[in-house]
Amino acid sequence: MTPKTDLSCPCGSHLTLEQCCGRYHQGELAPTPEALMRSRYVAFVLGRSDYLLATWHPSTRPAELAPDPDAEWKSLSIVSAEPPLDTIGYVHFRAFFYERGRVQKGWHVLEEASHFVKEQQRWWYIDGTPSLTRLKPRRNDPCLCGSGRKLKVCCGE
């Protein structure tokens, strides 16, 4: 695996943020449900609640969405991204993060099967079926950020 640099897109594409998800944050429309999901993950990483709300379908969008300062998003893994069926798309992903809060401190994985719809030539996030699991990686396990290094020399506590 190629090590990430500070300019790498957090979605794991190995492109720069500008070449990848950053362009969607600047207004270019995501061409597929997977591209939209990746850009939404990056918005979580960067604390871009405005983008998350702007890409959430009006029928299911919350009134507001506050960033979680205790969640440190580390990596994204696409489990499956079905080719969109005309105006409906699904993406199953896992997002690994470290929670710095007092109660939930530690490593977690958010797994979700997300549902997307295409209206007026634009993909929208509708909803998902999430599950949250607390992880207990060991010091010598591969780091959950995807660097390929051991946890103890990378993102270890």
Score class of each variant (00 low, 15 high):
Gln26Cys: 11
Arg61Ser: 06
Leu36Glu: 06
Phe93Trp: 14
Ser80Gln: 11
Gly47Glu: 03
Thr5Lys: 02
Arg38Gly: 12
Ser59Gly: 10
Val117Pro: 04
Leu29Met: 09
Leu110Ala: 09
Arg134Thr: 14
Val103Cys: 01
Tyr125Lys: 08
Thr87Arg: 05
Trp56Met: 08
Arg48His: 01
Pro58Leu: 12
Ser77Asn: 13
Arg94Ile: 06
Phe44His: 08
Leu85Tyr: 08
Gln19Trp: 02
Lys136Gln: 12
Glu111Arg: 10
Val103Pro: 00
Leu15Thr: 04
Pro10Ile: 06
His108Trp: 15
Lys136Glu: 07
Trp123Ile: 09
Gln26Trp: 07
Val109Cys: 07
Asp86Ser: 14
Val79Ala: 03
Ser131Asp: 13
Phe116Ser: 09
Leu29His: 13
Val153Ala: 10
Asp50Gly: 09
Arg122Ser: 05
Glu119Cys: 08
Asn140Ala: 12
Val45Asn: 01
Gly47Val: 02
Ser39Asn: 12
Glu111Ala: 15
Phe44Met: 02
Cys20Met: 04
Leu144Trp: 00
Leu135Trp: 01
Lys150Leu: 11
Pro31Trp: 11
Cys20Ser: 00
Leu46Val: 02
Leu46Gly: 05
Gly146Ser: 06
Glu157His: 13
Pro137Leu: 01
Glu82Asn: 12
Tyr24Val: 10
Asn140Ile: 13
Arg48Tyr: 02
Thr129Tyr: 05
Gly128Asp: 00
Lys118Met: 14
Pro142Arg: 11
Pro10Val: 00
Thr87Trp: 07
Glu18Ser: 09
Ser75Gly: 11
Gln121Val: 03
Arg134Ile: 10
Thr55Lys: 08
Leu29Arg: 14
Ala95Glu: 05
Ile88Pro: 07
Gly27Pro: 07
Pro69Lys: 03
Ile78Thr: 14
Thr60Lys: 10
Glu119Lys: 15
Pro83Leu: 15
Thr60Asp: 00
Leu144Phe: 05
Arg23Glu: 00
Val103Ile: 15
Glu72Tyr: 03
Met1Ser: 14
Tyr24Phe: 15
Lys4Gly: 00
Phe93Glu: 11
Phe93Leu: 15
Val42Arg: 00
Ser114Arg: 14
Phe116Met: 12
Glu99Phe: 06
Ala30Ile: 12
Gln104Leu: 12
